[in-house]
Simulated assay, not measured.
Amino acid sequence: MAVTLPEAGARRRSRAARLVFLAATCLFALVFTGLGLWQIERRTWKLDLIARVEARIHAPPVAAPGPAEWQGVDAAKDEYRRVALQGRYLDAPETLTMAVTERGPGFWVLAPLRSDAGFTVLVNRGFVPDDRRGPEERRKVAGEEARVVGLLRLSEPGGGFLRTNDPSAGRWYSRDVAAIAQARGLAEVAPYFVDADAATEPGPLPQGGMTQVSFRNTHLVYALTWFCLALMSAGAAVFLALGQRARSWREG
């Protein structure tokens, strides 16, 4: 049977469309495979980070970094490092920053401590619940000599809980060291704070040792999702290729 020109044109357009879909499914398969491999790399990095942090929080405490080391303090090598410092708590107001913990909502209590080495560190003494935030509810430390052991934490600038810190109103949603130091008139303050451990602040209020060390690790789930999409795309490509071959054989 003779094929008319309109029929031949329609077949060419249909074949071209199938080839475009075939190329697209092959491209999707490659892209999804690449994303899956990237998630595997991210998972390896995350597991290494978790292992390093676990080693830090259980290691013997080292001296808290002094001014000569501040410029080199960063998250990669210092976050959650167990440190110790000796000094005297300053006679200055404590700063309460919003917290959500396993014990419910409340506040972290930050107090400035002047170390014997001559610099000031904000010490997160621990947690107080929302209904017991008053200074009369917790042990007074102003002017007290103390040895603090805890975890080094980096400053949290700006705010948290989707809200911005408001120093003038005394509303703090994150532990922004620089902003707190400025609001309290503190000088030579370390660019980090220290979460006191339960031995340093046994409670009942504030309760130390409540640092939540957790890392979201869903990279394997994402990797499997991308690999499944890659397999589906590859399957669609094979289906289109076989269909195109069968049509070419029939038409030939």
Score class of each variant (00 low, 15 high):
Met1Ala: 14
Thr4Gln: 14
Leu5Trp: 05
Pro6Arg: 15
Pro6Cys: 10
Pro6Asn: 11
Ala8Met: 11
Gly9Ile: 09
Gly9Arg: 15
Arg15Gly: 08
Ala17Gly: 10
Leu19Ser: 11
Val20His: 08
Phe21Gln: 14
Leu22Trp: 14
Leu22Arg: 10
Ala24Ser: 07
Thr25Gln: 02
Cys26Val: 14
Leu27Val: 06
Phe28Pro: 04
Phe32Trp: 10
Gly34Asn: 12
Leu37Asp: 01
Trp38Cys: 08
Trp38Lys: 03
Gln39Asp: 01
Gln39Asn: 10
Gln39Ser: 04
Arg43Leu: 14
Leu47Tyr: 01
Leu49Ser: 01
Leu49Asn: 03
Arg52Ala: 15
Arg52Tyr: 05
Val53Lys: 01
Ala55Trp: 15
Ala59Gly: 04
Val62Gln: 10
Gly66Asn: 12
Pro67Val: 14
Pro67Asn: 11
Ala68Leu: 11
Ala68Tyr: 08
Trp70Pro: 00
Gln71Thr: 12
Gly72Phe: 13
Ala76Asp: 11
Asp78Asn: 11
Asp78Glu: 13
Tyr80Asn: 06
Arg81His: 09
Val83Thr: 13
Leu85Ala: 09
Gln86Ala: 14
Gly87Tyr: 10
Leu90Asn: 00
Ala92Asp: 08
Glu94Cys: 05
Thr95Met: 12
Leu96Val: 13
Leu110Pro: 08
Pro112Val: 12
Leu113Pro: 07
Arg114Ala: 15
Arg114Pro: 06
Ser115Leu: 09
Ser115Val: 09
Asp116Cys: 14
Thr120His: 07
Val121Asp: 07
Val123Pro: 04
Asn124Glu: 15
Arg125Phe: 10
Gly126Gln: 09
Gly126His: 06
Phe127Ala: 07
Asp130Phe: 12
Asp130Cys: 04
Asp130Lys: 12
Arg133Asp: 05
Gly134Phe: 15
Pro135Ser: 08
Arg138Leu: 11
Val141Ala: 06
Ala142Ser: 15
Gly143Asp: 13
Gly150Cys: 02
Leu154Thr: 04
Leu154His: 02
Leu154Lys: 00
Ser155Leu: 05
Glu156His: 07
Glu156Tyr: 09
Leu162Gly: 03
Arg163Gly: 04
Ser168Phe: 05
Ala169Leu: 15
Ala169Cys: 13
Arg171Gly: 03
Arg171Ala: 11
Arg175Gly: 04
Arg175Tyr: 01
Val177Glu: 06
Ile180Ser: 01
Ala181Ile: 13
Gln182Ile: 09
Gln182Asp: 11
Gln182Pro: 03
Ala183Phe: 04
Leu186Cys: 06
Ala187Cys: 04
Glu188Val: 07
Glu188Asn: 14
Val189Gln: 01
Pro191Phe: 15
Phe193Asp: 06
Phe193Ser: 07
Val194Gly: 03
Asp195Val: 04
Asp197Val: 02
Ala198Lys: 06
Ala198His: 11
Thr200Trp: 15
Glu201Tyr: 02
Pro202Val: 12
Pro204Gly: 10
Leu205Lys: 07
Leu205Trp: 12
Gly208Thr: 02
Gly208Lys: 03
Gly208Glu: 02
Gly209Pro: 04
Met210Val: 09
Thr211Ser: 15
Val213Lys: 05
Arg216Tyr: 07
Thr218Lys: 06
Thr218His: 11
Val221Tyr: 08
Leu224Asp: 03
Leu224Met: 10
Thr225Pro: 03
Phe227Arg: 00
Ala230Asp: 07
Met232Ser: 00
Met232His: 00
Ala234Pro: 03
Gly235His: 03
Ala237His: 04
Val238Phe: 06
Phe239Ala: 06
Leu240Ala: 14
Leu242Gln: 13
Gly243Val: 09
Gly252Phe: 06
